[in-house]
């Protein structure tokens, strides 16, 4: 399916040529489509352009109607790092995203496997509960959970965000289960006949077949953590040492009273790694996104 998204369908030449008026109409439609696409693409790119330009402006220029930086002030990017400990924030984002993703994979894969490939009574009900847990807003349970972490004296650290991933994540379980379902049972049965236990089957057969899905889940999980704002704000809002990039960036202006040019430079610094990651793993992204959609 996804391979199809990458290619435009080639026009079919097997039928006889359509009449001239139809061809003209098709041509016009194509032109209209493309002009719309180009216009839309410009609009979509414009915010990036302005963010980049402003990131190079001087203080006063950022508050003026000028669009083009003059002179280009590269110093902004150095200033950003002296205004706020961005490296520290980046490290925290990595700790949060990295550990959470590792933990989440380790705990969610077996659950997804049991929900997809083991037969047991109550499986469908369990899956429904996973769905419900995935769909309910986290705000519903956030207060007692916060109280719990406060009593454990872990508020202020990143652990309240990382540790729960040891115990499975509904969305990842859902995604992995959907993918595991597409693995033909014949492979598993063959392994069973060979005397493999379910754990062996999972670690050898299933993991090997499900690599793309696992990569997608890992990618999503990492991006979720990187982008997460509510969680880090809630648990580390009062501990600037443990701020992630999202929280640090949101507080950048209010805490440091920083001007727009520096704010945009910082914004750019936060956007850049995600964009780079995207170009490195473009296919995993697109496949992953489609996996969240209608895939059974």
């Amino acid at each position: 399916m996804t391979s199809a998204t990458a290619k435009a369908q080639p026009p079919t030449f097997t039928r006889r040529k359509p009449p001239a008026n139809v061809r003209r109409r098709r041509f016009l439609v194509t032109v209209a489509d493309h002009s719309f696409l180009i216009a839309a693409a410009l609009v979509f790119l414009a915010p990036f352009v302005f963010i980049v330009l402003t990131a190079f402006m001087t203080n006063d220029q950022a508050l003026s109607p000028d669009l083009w930086p003059h002179p280009f002030r590269f110093q902004n990017f150095a200033d950003v790092f002296s205004e706020a400990p961005l490296w520290r924030y980046a490290l925290n984002s990595l700790i949060y995203g990295g550990l959470a993703t590792l933990f989440l994979l380790a705990s969610s894969i077996p659950v997804a496997y049991a929900l997809a490939k083991l037969r047991w009574r109550g499986r469908e009900a369990a899956f429904l509960i996973v769905l419900v847990a995935m769909l309910l807003p986290p705000q519903v349970t956030v207060i007692p959970v916060y109280v719990m972490w406060a009593k454990l004296h872990l508020v202020g650290s990143l652990w309240p965000l990382i540790l729960p991933n040891l115990l499975g994540d509904a969305f990842s379980i859902f995604l992995l289960r959907q993918f595991f379902l597409t693995i033909p049972d014949e492979y598993l049965d063959a392994a069973r006949v060979d005397g493999c236990g379910e754990f062996r089957i999972l670690t050898t057969v299933v993991l090997r077949l499900a690599k793309p899905a696992i990569a997608a889940v890992a990618l999503f999980s990492f991006l979720f953590c990187f982008n997460d704002f509510f969680g880090p704000l809630l648990y580390t809002g009062e501990s600037p040492d443990n701020w992630t990039l999202s929280v640090g960036l949101a507080q950048f202006r209010t805490v440091h009273q920083v001007q727009w040019n520096l704010t945009m430079a910082a914004t750019l610094i936060v956007i850049a790694p995600v964009v780079v990651l995207f170009f490195l793993a473009q296919r995993a992204f697109v496949e992953g996104v489609t996996l969240t959609g209608v895939k059974g």
Binding site: I95, L99, T101, A218
Partner: peptide, 26 residues
């Protein structure tokens, strides 16, 4: 497929650095 592998690798490297970073941060 290669890109997926790269992504996986990136993640692995990240998480390794993370574990190292974590010990130092406490």
């Amino acid at each position: 497929m290669r890109r997926v592998a790269i992504a996986g690798l990136v993640l692995l490297v990240l998480s390794a650095s993370v574990i190292a970073g974590c010990g130092g941060s406490s």
